[in-house]
Structure formats: structure tokens, C-alpha cells
Design a binder for these strands. Structure first.
Length: 347
RNA sequence: GGCGGCGUAGCCAAGAGGUAAGGCAACGGUCUGCAAAACCGUCAUACCCCGGUUCGAAUCCGGGCGCCGCCUCCA
């Protein structure tokens, strides 16, 4: 109010958008354009219909705080300006939020903050696209609404993160059973490779090809992230590196380069908040959280032993019967040189 | 109705006037007793549609269509 950006009207305080020349700079709107489409009932107390409240008088029965303008509460954009200035200062690097908040919330936040401080508010604004479910928007009225905690019961939290990372944050992200299945499968493929690479106690020598792939991954990470946080690109590059690791493991064997790859992936993907688990831990967890209907791990191990005996006798019929049976229970077997392992199907 | 944004293969996604990156999936092959995993290979005469500019357009211009967000209060 002292600077003339705001005025008192009754027991309210409003921000005068006309006094702030940059108003509309974030959402790309001009005041005159906005007025054309305005269909709000003009609030008698406002000097201009586009002005917004900084302080509102409380209605009877509402919570309130005491103020020079009477009992009331802060306008609805105030809390964000106050919190960010308290903890980040009058100007800071990045402000995020959903696309739905661009106007008016963020626009008003900028106006009131910059008017008060005289400094630029946030340097960058990241507005994420909204979530869709099976190509429909997620909304309560459509009944396809669910919370994050419900989602984490259905899918692994890490797969959900990977799902979002494989999209550009600005675009809508389309949740679906198929897409989440793919995400879970991708995660497993990655961890399977990391597991191979982590079994490098006796790692010997190095693989120049793999090391150049590692360097490329790291360089690409920086350029992708510098390009408006293109995490989808990073995920693609990660799969390239995963292939390189497998190729190296297949042809050269266990090297210190594989150990290095593991370290780099952990470091870089740690920035993105994924792949923080030990590969062996991940596999163990997949088994323990798998939805094993009508079968327990003990029985699985028993059947695997039985099948391996049959295989030794070249009793392929019996061996295949056991495998088919386990398959019907959602168990997939993997025969390796050092024995047979199992994993649960992704459901 | 107004304003802002988006539309590239089943999915994610690069490209921003010079003849469609990459990843996932799918399919074929190698390996395997057979599988699984892994590896190798294939996979858009085509970029929502219709016009126009240009030697040349996914990229520029005009007009449509579709989708998303916001435009009352609350956060």
C-alpha cells in the first residue's frame, strides 16, 4: 500500500493490477484482452474487476487474524509469496507448479512479490502438464480419480517415478495399466543389468568401449537436462548405456568399467530420484512383494529342485511340466550357468 | 465466447526450411534340450486436415479440426 500498488476498500486490501506494468507477463495475457472474456460479477469493492485480494475481511464464523484493516485473513496468493521469500529470499531460481496455476495464481504471486520487493521473483517457472488416465483427463466427476498413495499401492513408487521421467514434464502424462506395466518392466530390465554388473567382485581389466559409452551417457545427461529438463531423453540414453553394459558383460566379461558404469548410473539417476536400490535388494523385494497366488516361495524352490533333477536325467517332459505349472502361477524361471532363479510376473 | 498451450509410428520423444534422432513395445534371428534373460536385425514416402509460399515444408503463411489448461469461490 505504501508503494501505491494496493488500496484499501472496506476492510479488504486489493492489489491494483493496472499499477503493475508487467502484469500478465507469465501467462502471456494483456489486461485488455482479459477484460473481454471476463464473466465474473464485478465486485463492487474492487476498483478494477481484475484486481485481486491481498487481505480479506473474514465473514462471520470464519477463522481470522487481527490486522490494521480489521479481522480477516490473507488473500490466497499471499502464502506462497511469504513462504518462498522467507526460505528462499526475494528472488530465487525455480518455481514449480501445475499448468492450471499459471493464471491467476502464479501471475498474482509475481505481481504482489515484485511490487513489494522491487526485485525479480523466480528466475524460472516450471509448469507441468496434468495427469490423464487412459487418455481422459483425471477428474472426480469422471470417477477416474485416485491419489498418489493409492497409486503406490498398485504400482511400485520407483516405477511411477520412472513413468513420469520418461515424459516431458510440460506434457500431459497418460496413466494407464499398459503404460505402468511397461514402466515396471523397464525398471526390471534396468535392475537386471545392474545386478549383472554388480557381481564384479572379481572384476578384471577395463573395457574402453564401455567407458566411452559411460562418458557419452554423462555428457548427454547434462545436455538433455540443460534442454528444458528433457528427462525423457535421459531415460532413452540410460537404456543405451544399459545395452552397452550388457554387451560388454557378454563379450568382455566382468570389468572394472562395469563397476564404473554402475557408479555413474547411481550418481546420475540419484539426481532424478530413481535407481537408488541395490540391485540384489530390488530383486529380493520383487519376490517378496509379488502377488503369489496359491503358491509360496518355499514350494517354488522345491519345484525348481525337482525340475533340475529331471533336467539332469534329460526328462524334458517333466521339466517342462513343472515350468509350465509355475508359469501358470505367474512365476518365470531363468536357467543360468550358476543355477536357476525365478521371478514373479509383473501384474 | 475470450486467453494460453499442444497435435511426429502402438507408447515416450528429437527435429524449427534441405529431404523423419533415440528409447520402449512389436516382429524376425543368435544363444538355449525348450524357454527366460541377453545380444543382433527389422520397424513412419511420412509428421491432425485443406490450401498457399518455395527448387525444396513436419518445420514458414492462411483456414479448419481435435485435445488440454485458465477465465466465480477455495487452495
Amino acid at each position: 500500500m505504501e508503494k501505491g500498488f494496493a488500496y484499501r476498500s472496506g476492510n479488504n486490501v486489493f492489489f491494483s493490477v493496472r499499477k503493475f506494468p508487467d502484469y500478465g507477463k507469465l501467462s502471456g495475457r494483456s489486461l485488455d484482452h482479459m477484460l473481454e472474456g471476463v464473466r465474473i460479477d464485478v465486485n463492487e469493492e474492487k476498483e478494477d474487476p481484475l484486481d485481486f485480494a491481498l487481505w480479506k475481511e473474514s465473514k462471520p464464523g470464519e477463522p481470522f487474524w487481527k490486522s490494521p484493516w480489521g479481522n480477516g485473513r490473507p488473500g490466497w496468493h499471499i502464502e506462497c509469496s511469504v513462504m518462498s521469500m522467507e526460505y528462499l529470499g526475494t528472488n530465487f531460481e525455480i518455481h514449480g507448479g501445475g499448468k492450471d496455476l499459471v493464471f491467476p495464481h502464479h501471475e498474482n504471486e509475481i505481481a504482489q512479490s515484485e511490487a513489494a520487493s522491487g526485485e525479480p521473483f523466480a528466475k524460472y517457472w516450471l509448469h507441468n502438464g496434468l495427469i490423464r488416465i487412459n487418455r481422459e483427463k483425471m477428474s472426480k466427476s469422471l470417477g477416474n480419480f485416485f491419489t498418489l498413495s493409492e497409486a503406490t499401492k498398485r504400482w511400485s513408487p520407483e516405477a511411477i517415478r520412472l513413468f513420469f521421467l520418461s515424459h516431458h514434464y510440460q506434457n500431459p502424462a497418460d496413466f494407464s495399466e499398459k503404460n505402468m506395466y511397461d514402466s515396471e518392466a523397464s525398471l526390471e530390465r534396468i535392475y537386471l543389468t545392474l545386478l549383472r554388473a554388480s557381481e564384479t567382485q572379481k572384476a578384471k581389466g577395463r573395457d574402453a568401449k564401455l567407458e566411452s559409452s559411460i562418458r557419452k551417457f554423462e555428457e548427454d545427461f547434462h545436455s538433455s537436462m540443460s534442454d528444458n529438463f528433457n528427462t525423457a531423453d535421459v531415460v532413452g540414453n540410460l537404456f543405451d548405456l544399459i545395452r552397452s553394459i550388457n554387451r560388454s558383460l557378454d563379450s568382455v566379461g566382468r570389468t572394472q568399467s562395469a563397476t564404473l558404469a554402475l557408479k555413474k548410473i547411481k550418481e546420475i539417476c540419484g539426481v532424478l530420484g530413481v535407481l537408488h536400490q541395490e540391485p540384489a535388494e530390488y530383486m529380493k523385494q520383487r519376490k517378496s512383494t509379488a502377488n503369489l497366488s496359491n503358491i509360496d516361495p518355499f514350494e517354488i524352490e522345491k519345484l525348481i529342485d525337482e525340475r533340475n533333477s529331471a533336467r539332469k536325467e534329460k526328462n524334458w517332459k517333466k521339466a517342462d511340466e513343472i515350468r509350465d505349472y509355475l508359469n501358470s502361477k505367474g512365476i518365470v524361471l531363468e536357467d543360468r550357468q550358476d543355477g536357476t532363479d525365478w521371478k514373479a510376473n509383473i501384474t
